[in-house]
Simulated assay, not measured.
Amino acid sequence: MQALARTEARTVVRPPLQPGRRNGRCWVDGPVNRWFVRSYTEHDRAPDWSSSALIADAAEKLSLIHRNALTIDAQVLKIPARRLRPYEWGLADTLERVDALVRDMEARRRAPQHIALFRREMDRLHGQRPGLDLGREGLTHHDLRPENLLVRDGRVVEIVDWDRAHRDVQWYDVTLAALHLAYLQPVEPRWDLAELFMDAYRDASGTRLSTEATDWLLRYTAVRNLAVSRSPDKWDRLVKGIAQWRGAAPSLLVDDLVAGDQVAVHGDVAVEDGGAVEAAGVG
């Protein structure tokens, strides 16, 4: 964060405060996590995430961060998987450690159908991965969702909660944010908002994936979060919804799909770190 705050990305990334230093790091202990201490940024409590201008601005700010993160030493960002918990693993480790993730799901008593879906789709994704260009690797936020984008007057003024950040495929941040935006209206997912975010990021970053690579990464993002998120039902519906949205050929994952099973009828959007937050400002 200190490195980014010395670049153009300082418009949306604030350096951590330094109430005290321990092992050269700026953080405080919490009951579960270690959180960077940062100054407060004034922001709107209920931004309108149906706004195309706001979505485009968020994509441009993400591109700004990805681009300026190239100044950070790659070795600083590359954390060995053995030092990370499963929900923090990057793309390569996730694909190669499916059995470990299945054991983790079993230990957390995830639904058998979710475990079966995860293993089946990960095997399929693994087989399709060779030859796909997924774009540049570099700093990723790894938890990019509307709740972590602070908005004031229709523009993103800060991106927060960087505790999961590390080196990975940067387009993962893009597909993750796109899917969160689509699900802000879970009764009828807003795939148009997801498309808008991805298009805006392409334009701002100048990076473009093939249709095959984009489809693959969207499916990977949903399947990965089915395993590691605290909201597996949400990601189960997104896995199935993506298959229809992107016009994918029928597979085992949609054999039993019916229209009424695609989304949940409820007024809250689950938060990945637990709890729920009202989906305000979305029509």
Score class of each variant (00 low, 15 high):
Ala100Cys: 05
Leu101Asn: 04
Leu101Pro: 00
Arg103Val: 02
Arg103Ile: 00
Asp104Cys: 09
Asp104Ser: 14
Asp104Tyr: 14
Ala107Gln: 15
Ala107Leu: 15
Arg108Thr: 08
Ala111Thr: 03
Gln113His: 13
Ile115Asp: 11
Ile115Gly: 10
Leu117Pro: 02
Arg119Phe: 08
Arg120His: 11
Glu121Cys: 11
Glu121Asp: 11
Asp123Glu: 14
Asp123Ser: 12
Arg124Gln: 15
Arg124Ser: 15
Leu125Phe: 11
Leu125Glu: 11
Leu125Gln: 12
His126Lys: 13
Gly127Val: 05
Arg129His: 12
Pro130Thr: 01
Gly131Ala: 01
Leu132Tyr: 06
Leu132Cys: 05
Asp133Gln: 06
Gly135Met: 03
Arg136Gly: 06
Arg136Asn: 07
Arg136Trp: 07
Glu137Asn: 06
Thr140Val: 11
Thr140Tyr: 04
His142Val: 01
Asp143His: 09
Asp143Tyr: 07
Asp143Ile: 01
Leu144Ile: 01
Arg145Asp: 05
Val151Lys: 08
Val151Ser: 10
Val151Leu: 07
Gly154Tyr: 06
Arg155Ser: 14
Val157Asn: 10
Glu158Lys: 12
Glu158Cys: 12
Asp161Lys: 10
Asp161Met: 11
Asp163Pro: 00
Asp163Ile: 01
Asp163Lys: 00
Ala165Cys: 07
His166Gln: 13
His166Val: 01
Arg167Lys: 05
Arg167Met: 02
Arg167Ser: 06
Asp168Phe: 01
Asp168Ile: 00
Gln170Val: 01
Trp171Gln: 08
Trp171Gly: 09
Tyr172Gly: 10
Asp173Lys: 00
Asp173Pro: 03
Val174Met: 06
Ala178Tyr: 04
Leu179Phe: 06
His180Asp: 04
Ala182Thr: 02
Ala182Tyr: 02
Ala182Val: 00
Tyr183Lys: 02
Tyr183His: 10
Tyr183Trp: 13
Tyr183Asn: 11
Gln185Asn: 09
Gln185Met: 04
Glu188Lys: 09
Glu188Asn: 09
Pro189Trp: 03
Pro189Gly: 04
Arg190Met: 07
Arg190Glu: 07
Trp191Met: 11
Glu195Trp: 11
Glu195Lys: 11
Leu196Gly: 08
Phe197Thr: 03
